[in-house]
Design a protein around this nucleic acid. Structure first.
Lengths: 236, 236
DNA sequence: CGCGATTCTAACGAATTCTTACAGCTTCGC
DNA sequence: GCGAAGCTGTAAGAATTCGTTAGAATCGCG
């Protein structure tokens, strides 16, 4: 009965689906309330205000779309439609009546959880919990803190320009990155002698990574072509 | 060139898809910008800040998920992934990395439009937080009492001007805040050299937060761009 | 080996940002 | 009112970032 956990209201007439959803959601850290019929569902809304409503459109006792429409107007909750009707037109009208998402049966509970999380994330002022960290060759690069941390835990800060280069490498490791691609990606305006600036950026980055100039192990220069960042990179 | 219309940035390497999307979106009342490659796309983001980003995951020059990840942290835009990969796991990781929606190819442009509308609708409804207290990095900021309280319960008062800056940071943590945004938000109407005043406000705030000038942990300067406030922030 | 093309890096300098000092202004207590 | 204290912007010099320059080092190719 933890009031801090987000509350998800489920409206579906099939018991197995209700069960499947509530199991998956509770395991994922949500509270749930299940309803089989629209009238019960609406009564429940008056007692508690859920953060997310999962609504099956194929209801026996009510026009699901009308319900969605009203929910969208009256409740602040995120509304996700679950439906067996897969036609584009169905989805479009559902979304236009105010739903925030539209999931087609049969569905995977994992995806439902992910979509609910995506909805809640936007609504909150809280920062997204996705970390912005890459691990490689004994280093951890924290792009949010502009910090490199080595195996021993020693910290080295890097500047924004250096970070741009490092990120570009870590996003495409073991792949040739041409100077042209870099220039474009790093906002290099026109093709003048911006090349030199990039050399310098990379040079500074290499020293921060403790590369041996004679024998760079991470950032390889491909003469006449560009650079390759070598190594296993893991994000997160 | 109506700046009031929402701007949608499209990133897809297939020309037909770009065309199809931009046609549908423009007919639906959006402005669009199309890009074939990630590097161009990122360069475009620096010039204009779209309200929605449509990103194809199958990019030739970059790991699409890494790009999405970064977008989610740095841009306030809604992010919609378009992908040929239909596996549940693909969708879940996409959403967990910060995407707001995930559309599978082949898709119907009408549905894309509807989903974009649904996203934008939610963004506008975002209710302003009425709480006057924020917690972050061991600090509690009480805006109603102009008081900062650290873990040990020691109190430090802050001024109105300092509070304006602090609130701006705490309302969008882990996101770049440009000097222009600050100036606008803090009512710095006149003064072209209002920038200096800004510097001083931030400097004073930093000392009150006990930041190490060499290595600020909370308020990072992005040379030539603005500032980022780092950390988990909880309001209330 | 020699030569031109390419890349590296140390040093410099312009732009930007930080910090300290100071002055004008408001607020508060008396 | 008066003076002290605090707030806030301006000014000025220090510090940082980062592109540019230039000379050295390296590479590819004969």
């Amino acid at each position: 009965m933890n009031a801090d956990l987000p509350l998800v209201a489920i409206l579906d007439d099939e018991p197995e689906i209700r069960r499947m959803l509530s199991d998956a959601l509770e395991e994922a850290g949500f509270r749930t309330q299940s309803y089989a019929r629209a009238t019960e569902f609406e009564a429940g809304l008056k007692r508690s205000s859920p953060d997310v409503c999962l609504v099956d459109l194929g209801l026996p006792d009510r026009d699901g779309l009308a319900l969605v429409h009203r929910l969208a107007l009256e409740s602040g909750a995120a509304i996700i439609i679950i439906s067996g009707r897969a036609q584009v037109q169905d989805r479009v009208t559902g979304l236009e009546l105010g739903a925030d998402d539209y999931i087609i049966k049969p569905f995977d509970p994992t995806e439902v959880v992910a979509r609910i999380r995506a909805r809640l994330r936007k609504g909150r002022t809280e920062s997204p919990s996705v970390s912005q960290t890459a691990h490689f060759a004994g280093w951890s690069a924290h792009f949010d803190r502009y910090l490199l941390i080595d195996e021993a835990g020693r910290e080295t800060s890097f500047s924004h320009a250096e970070g741009e280069v490092l990120r570009l490498f870590l996003e495409s490791p073991n792949r040739l990155i041409t100077r042209a691609q870099m220039q474009e990606s790093l906002g290099g305006a026109a093709g003048e002698s911006f090349d030199r600036a990039m050399d310098v950026r990379i040079s500074r980055l290499r020293t921060k990574l403790g590369e041996d100039p004679k024998n760079p192990r991470l950032i390889k220069t491909i003469y006449g072509a560009g650079y390759i960042f070598l190594g296993e990179v893991r994000w997160g």
